[in-house]
Simulated scan of single mutants.
Amino acid sequence: MNGYFPNRTVPLPQRSISLTVREAQILALIADGTSNAAIAQRLYITVDTVKTYNRRIFRKLNANDRAHAVAQAFRAGVLQ
């Protein structure tokens, strides 16, 4: 074996991922490394509301956590 490993990433299914404006705002802040508390303060919402948005974003992107959501969003073209 020559040490070359082909790209083993699996593309996301070709489906439209539709985020609300607020979900997109929160996802962008997550991608910037902003904490839930800082997101809540910046957007004038509660931390619990941020967590609810996080769950919705994770569900839409089929993600397990914040880092996975950001990776999935880049793969799907939601973030650039």
Rank of each mutant, 00 (worst) to 15 (best):
M1P: 13
I39H: 00
A67S: 11
V78G: 00
L19Q: 02
H68K: 08
L12F: 08
S18L: 14
T49C: 11
A63Y: 07
H68W: 09
I39N: 01
I45V: 12
R56I: 09
I45K: 05
A31Q: 02
Y53I: 00
T46Q: 10
T46E: 13
A63C: 01
T49L: 06
K51N: 09
R59S: 10
I26K: 00
R59G: 09
D48N: 12
T9N: 08
Q41D: 15
N36A: 13
A73Y: 06
Q72L: 02
G3A: 08
A73K: 02
T20P: 03
Q41A: 15
V50G: 03
Y44A: 14
D65Y: 09
A38H: 10
L43P: 06
T49I: 05
Q41N: 14
L19C: 05
R22H: 06
Q25G: 03
Q14M: 14
V70Y: 06
P6N: 03
V47W: 13
R75K: 15
M1F: 15
A38M: 11
E23H: 09
A40F: 00
R8P: 11
G3C: 08
A40Q: 04
V70H: 00
T34C: 07
A73Q: 04
D32R: 08
N62A: 07
F74W: 11
A24E: 13
E23D: 12
R75Q: 13
P6E: 11
A31L: 00
A73P: 09
L27K: 05
A73T: 02
A71F: 13
G77D: 10
I30K: 00
N7M: 05
F74Y: 15
N36V: 02
I45T: 07
R59L: 09
Y4I: 14
R56Q: 11
D48S: 08
R22T: 14
A40T: 01
R59V: 06
V21R: 15
L29D: 05
A31K: 01
N54K: 13
V47F: 13
A24F: 11
R66Y: 06
V47T: 15
T9E: 12
P11K: 02
P11N: 02
A76D: 06
G3T: 07
K51Q: 11
R15P: 08
N64G: 14
G33F: 00
S35Q: 01
D48C: 04
M1Y: 14
L29R: 03
L43T: 12
Q41L: 15
A73R: 05
G3R: 10
V50A: 03
K60L: 02
T46I: 04
L43E: 12
A38S: 10
T9I: 04
A67K: 12
F5V: 14
A63P: 00
V70E: 03
Q14K: 15
R66H: 11
G33P: 00
A31S: 05
Q14P: 11
A63Q: 01
A31N: 04
L29M: 08
L29T: 05
V78A: 00
Q72H: 08
T20V: 02
P13S: 09
P11D: 05
K51G: 05
F5L: 13
V21D: 15
M1N: 14
S16I: 14
D65L: 01
F74P: 03
E23C: 13
E23N: 12
D32Y: 07
Q80M: 07
D32W: 05
T49F: 08
Q72W: 02
L12K: 09
Y44Q: 13
T34K: 09
V78R: 00
T52C: 06
G3D: 13
T52W: 06
A38T: 08
I26P: 03
N64R: 15
